[in-house]
Design a protein around this nucleic acid. Structure first.
Lengths: 248, 248
DNA sequence: GCCGTCAAATGGTGTAGCCCAATTTTTTGA
DNA sequence: TCAAAAAATTGGGCTACACCATTTGACGGC
């Protein structure tokens, strides 16, 4: 059967509608201009209003549009900062218009040990692949990164040449898809060896980032510890008041 | 009629259901335990499955539960870190179990000037209320904060005694409710005067945070510039892969 | 025992339609 | 003329139902 189901594949009607709306948003419409009403979209796309609402709600949640009851849905101002998104270094740099790269990549397979084991919920004796990379943007050192991945979920990773996006490799080769990450960001200063690796003066300010990444099943996939030079990196994002929860 | 509308007020059925589910989550159920199925909840609460889904989706989005097609909905592990939420210093410290306070509060009304005016989209000549506060947690200096609020949306603010939560005051007195904020976080080191104010050694690491806050109508409410001591502060949050967008 | 197959359970997406709440626009009337 | 009232518009929330996609577990054959 060419068409297994009643809905037209290609990601479903919601996804098609979303694509169309995205086209409107950063194509024809300018910030604060009004999108078609839900009812109009529903009719012209031959879908239910609920489907339209889901697409618009999602865009609203992502900060692309804002919605006001009684008034309409409007295009948000161009995002000077992205909302907090889970991205790899590679994606992150590309989004900033820089060319990502790596220096001095080292890979080894080692026992997790106490700390890494705890982070990944492994026995200290279980093995992990340890990647050490100096990551670059437009050729300049940007970040020093230690990544640990349980050997049992990515066998043979340590023997593999890692180039480009680790996340892409994990997805394509091991079908491990990161869906969620806990991240902890600290401010620190660079001690001499790290400063040298990053090519900045000693005791320059820096971010230290620890991250535990999970897949959709809450299985821990990765623990990463990174140090970013602060002169070329900042965290820019949009935050929303989450839920009209209980008290203020 | 005792019940003006079809739905039973009190925040709507969805909100009631949400409250019940929250009770389950951090009450009776342990992490990774299974919640009732959508259909069960729908029946026992006398609501539609769609209503149940909205509540569960929301909880899933907040990281309280995770959902797997074909399997069920499960309680997430206790959140060691909150998802990124828009909070005031007051709320933030309370959430960390600390008692928030302020030292050396100063309030004045001044012309916005070039930089602040640009941040708040005001003419440089328009007036803003400027608050300077050394904010404390459990009595210890934690953060130095400059806050600027357009005088025209909060008249008389500069003459008022600010104590406790500015956001609460804005909501209750001026009906200004912050819904969204753009935030930019930098790592830096403390110059001697700031270090002294915070009671830490000179050139200690610190976060510099710039924030522009908006209400639901995209009106700019506040610009704040804060410096947090890094030895006692970190950003901990959970990030999700946003949308199954286009490419990886 | 072990592995495949198949059915049941469960979340994901969609249709069709109802009324409410907030906002905007139009009309009305002093 | 202009402000108050009414109507139309528009997003918010819900009901009731149908079918798809994925996962899980039980059953059977080997």
């Amino acid at each position: 059967m060419a068409q297994t189901t009643g809905n037209g594949r290609a990601g479903g009607k919601g996804a098609q509608l979303r694509a169309y709306l995205l086209g409107l948003i950063d194509g024809e419409l300018k910030p604060h201009e009004k999108l078609p009403t839900e009812r109009e979209l529903a009719e012209s796309f031959g879908v239910t209003r609920l489907t339209v609402r889901r697409a618009l709600d999602q865009l609203g949640y992502e900060g692309r549009v804002y919605r006001t009851q009684g008034a309409g849905t409007f295009v948000s101002e161009p995002r000077i900062a992205k909302s907090v998104e889970l991205t790899s270094f590679t994606q992150d740099m590309r989004a900033r218009g820089l060319v990502p790269g790596s220096l001095e990549t080292q890979v080894e397979e080692i026992p997790a040990g106490a700390e890494i084991g705890a982070r990944l919920a492994l026995s200290p004796r279980e093995h992990v692949a340890h990647l050490f990379r100096v990551r670059t943007a437009d050729g300049e050192p940007m970040c020093i990164e230690h990544t640990y991945i349980p050997a049992k979920i990515a066998p043979g990773l340590a023997a593999r040449a890692i180039e480009g996006s680790l996340y892409q490799l994990l997805t394509e080769t091991y079908h491990l898809k990161v869906e969620k990450a806990e991240q902890s960001i600290h401010a620190t200063v660079l001690d001499p060896p790290l400063a040298k690796l990053l090519g900045v003066p000693e005791f320059s300010p820096a971010f230290k980032v620890q991250r535990v990444a999970y897949d959709a099943r809450n299985q821990r996939i990765e623990y990463a510890e990174s140090v970013y030079r602060a002169d070329r990196y900042s965290y820019d994002f949009i935050i929303y008041r989450t839920t009209r929860d209980t008290a203020n």
